[in-house]
Each structure stands twice: as C-alpha cells, then as structure tokens.
C-alpha cells in the first residue's frame, strides 16, 4: 500500500562536470557543480533554456555517467538507474500499447514484484479511478501526466526527479497539478528535484531554488525559501524573490 515509511533520499554532487561530443567537438554542459540535497527537500532548478539542467537530472537518475566528479545517493555512489530514483519527463511518455493500469504497473513488471493494490492506490491517488482500462490516446494532457505521476509513485520512490513535468499543460491544469504535487510530497515525504522554467512555480513549491548559469551550467544562486505552505502567489516576499531570480536569469530589474 501507499505509505510514507520509505525514507527520503539525500543526494550529493561533488564537483560534477559533464559534456557531449557534438559534431566531433567536445561541448561542456555542466562545470564543477556542487550540490548537497538533504532528504525530504523540494529542490527547484532554474536556468536559461538549454543550460544543462536536464543533463543534471539524467546524471542523478543514473541514465548517464558524468565525465568528472562524484555523485552520491545516501553516501553510495550513483552508478546507474535505480528504482528508488524515478524520473518524470515533460511528456507523459506513457506506453500507448498499455492501458493506464498497465502503464502504472510498469515498474512492477520490471521488478517482477506485482502488487495490484499499490497500483490501484496510485491510480486513485492521482484521481484517475474509472480510467484504469483506458488507452493513453484517450486521455487529455493533464490526465496523461497524472498517469505518469502515478507510474512514478507506485513503488514509493525515495527521490522524484521531475523534468518540467507541468511544462506542456494548460495553465489551469497546471495549477491543480502543482497543488497535488505539493500534497503528495507533504504526505509521502520523498525528496524532489524539479527542473522548471516557471519562476513562480519554483517559488510556490520548492524549499530551495537553485539557479544555473548559461551553458556550461554552474550554480549561480541557492536560495532557501523559508515560507510555510500554502504560499500565496501575491506574497510580497515571493514577489521580491521572483524579481531577484529573474535578474539572475538575465532579465532587467524593471521587467
């Protein structure tokens, strides 16, 4: 069953650098990134488009190995993907040949540990009950992203890695999903690392907002948001922070 007994995961990035060979030339993407993420934090990563935030997420997820530096998950080196660190992408990437239920059960199919009750609980948790047997193409964008969320949460991950998960949703669906994400994080107590382009979203949800420079990305600022939830988007403190962050991201102060 869904519960909050699995402890959250802490992540340590120690001087991590990474890059790609593009057209035969080495292009650095991340440069000496140092990050210490405590268990249970909600981290928002902001930065100019294409700066390497998503690459950072792929490294933490274990989908790629960094060229240099050390990455630890609870003091154990990250050597590959693991079921305690689940990624949710900008697109729901549901498998079109699986029903909603079978999509949510994906991680169980992979591990071979089938737990139907957990699947049903995850589907109910994201409000998709009644759609268990629907095909992905029958879902709206928001519903598909909910299904992807259920798929990510079904086996109680200790770290949820979110790559602009709400980026393609319409603004109203987005607000609902933000609230739900927050509720789930508060209920279940996992660690969240989320890339977003929406400064306001970062400020409303995160306990810490980290801004990156343009490529090769390095940490520009690391702001702890010490405000209680529910935060109000018109809170003057948040508005001031928002202006500061926009300046760091290269927008003029009077924007």
């Amino acid at each position: 069953m869904v519960n909050a007994t699995t402890p959250a995961l802490g992540i340590l990035l120690d001087d991590v650098s990474h890059g790609y060979d593009i057209g035969g030339r080495f292009t650095p993407v991340l440069e000496n990134v140092n990050l210490n993420i405590a268990p249970g934090e909600f981290i928002a990563l902001l930065g100019p488009s294409g700066c390497g935030k998503s690459t950072l997420l792929r490294l933490v997820a274990g989908l790629e190995t960094p060229r240099a530096g050390r990455m630890l998950a609870d003091s154990a080196p990250i050597t590959g993907p693991g079921p305690d660190r689940i990624v949710m992408f900008q697109d729901p990437t549901l498998y079109p040949w699986r029903t909603v239920r079978a999509n949510v059960a994906l991680s169980q199919d992979i591990s071979g540990r089938v737990d139907r009750a957990a699947v049903d609980a995850a589907i109910t948790m994201v409000g998709l009950q009644g759609f268990e047997n629907a095909w992905p193409h029958q879902l709206s964008g928001g519903m598909a992203q909910r299904a992807a969320l259920a798929r990510a949460l079904v086996n109680n991950p200790r770290l949820l890695i979110l790559d602009e998960p709400l980026g393609k949703l319409d603004s109203l669906t987005r607000l609902t999903m933000q609230t739900e994400l927050l509720r789930l994080w508060q209920d279940r107590g996992f660690t969240v690392i989320m890339v977003t382009h929406d400064v306001e979203e970062a400020l409303l949800l995160a306990t810490r907002v980290i801004t990156f420079s343009a490529r090769p990305a390095s940490v520009v600022s690391d702001i702890t948001i010490d405000l209680p939830y529910h935060r109000h988007r018109d809170d003057p403190h948040l508005l001031a922070l928002r202006r500061d962050i926009l300046v760091q991201l290269g927008h003029s102060a009077d924007w």
Partner: peptide, 28 residues
C-alpha cells in the same frame, strides 16, 4: 522514442525487458 527506453531504464529495466516489452510493442 528514446524516452520510452529512459522511462523503463530509470525503473531498472535490463536489455531483455527493453527489447521484448518496449522495443517490440512500440515497433509492432
């Protein structure tokens, strides 16, 4: 779509699963 592989890989899928349960149904 390479993202299909990424989804399964982050959940710990090995090559066998990627071929039989991801690649083949996607290419069906």
């Amino acid at each position: 779509d390479p993202a299909y592989y990424d989804v399964a890989r982050t959940m710990g899928a090995r090559d066998r699963f990627l071929v039989l349960r991801v690649a083949l149904p996607a290419a069906a």
